[in-house]
Simulated scan of single mutants.
Amino acid sequence: MDHNGFNDEKRESRLYIGNLDLRITEAALIKMFSPFGKIVSEDFLWHTRGPKRGEPRGFAFVQYSTKEEARLAKEKMHGRLACGRPLVVRLASEKFLAESEGSSPAGVGEAGKASGAGNSLGQMSRSARIAAIKNKLKALEEEGSSAKKQKNAEN
C-alpha cells in the first residue's frame, strides 16, 4: 500500500468522541470502545492551562486497527448514553469535513440532521446559530409563561 493509501486508511479508522462527561476516564473510554476492535491509540484531551488545567476537555480520539472496526464502533456508540450524556461519535475525518464544508453529504452530527429537516443551521455562522438558539429559548420561555398564566386563570 502506498503512503497516501496508508494515510487514508489511518484517517478512516480514527474516531472523534465528543460530549464526554467529565467523570469519564481514559480507562473507561477504552473499556467502552474496545469491544468493537483493536484500539491502536487513544488521545484523551486535557486542559493544559488556565483555571481548568488538568481537567478533561470533554472529547477524545480513538484509533482502531481497521476502518471497519471504526465504522462499527461509530454505528454502535453514536448517541449512546454515558453518564447521562449522549456520545457524539464520528470519523475524525468527518469532523474535519463538517467544519470545512459547512455540512457533509453524509449528514454528519446535529448540523446535518437540522439541515435535512429544512433548517439551514449547517450553513449559518456561529454567531447566527447562537442568535437563533437565543430566539428559540426566548420563544419557549414566553410560551411557558403564557401557559402558566392560562393555568392560573383556570384555577
Rank of each mutant, 00 (worst) to 15 (best):
F36S: 02
E55F: 12
D21E: 06
R129F: 04
R49D: 12
E141V: 13
G144L: 15
L45N: 09
P56N: 01
Y64S: 00
G116A: 11
G5P: 04
E141D: 13
F96C: 10
L20E: 03
L15V: 08
G102A: 04
I133R: 11
A98Q: 15
R11W: 11
A73N: 05
F33E: 04
Y16V: 00
R14G: 05
L121N: 04
M124P: 00
E12N: 14
I30T: 12
K95E: 14
A73Q: 03
R53T: 13
L140K: 14
L140I: 12
L81P: 01
G118I: 00
L137T: 10
R126N: 07
D8H: 14
S146T: 10
L97R: 14
G84M: 08
Q150L: 10
H47K: 14
S115A: 05
S146P: 00
S41D: 11
G118M: 07
A139Q: 14
F33R: 04
R85E: 10
L97G: 09
V89C: 04
A70R: 05
K10V: 14
P105M: 01
D43H: 15
F61A: 04
K10A: 12
L15I: 05
D43T: 15
N155W: 00
G102E: 05
K31N: 12
L45H: 10
H3T: 15
R53M: 15
I133S: 09
E68L: 01
I39V: 05
A27R: 10
R53L: 08
F96D: 11
W46M: 15
N119I: 02
D8T: 15
E142I: 02
K74N: 07
S145H: 07
A82E: 12
R71A: 03
N4P: 02
A70L: 08
I30G: 03
E75W: 07
A70N: 00
G54H: 11
A153C: 02
A111L: 13
S104V: 09
V88D: 08
P35Q: 03
L87T: 03
R85F: 06
G58W: 02
A98L: 06
V88I: 15
P86D: 04
R11A: 14
N119D: 08
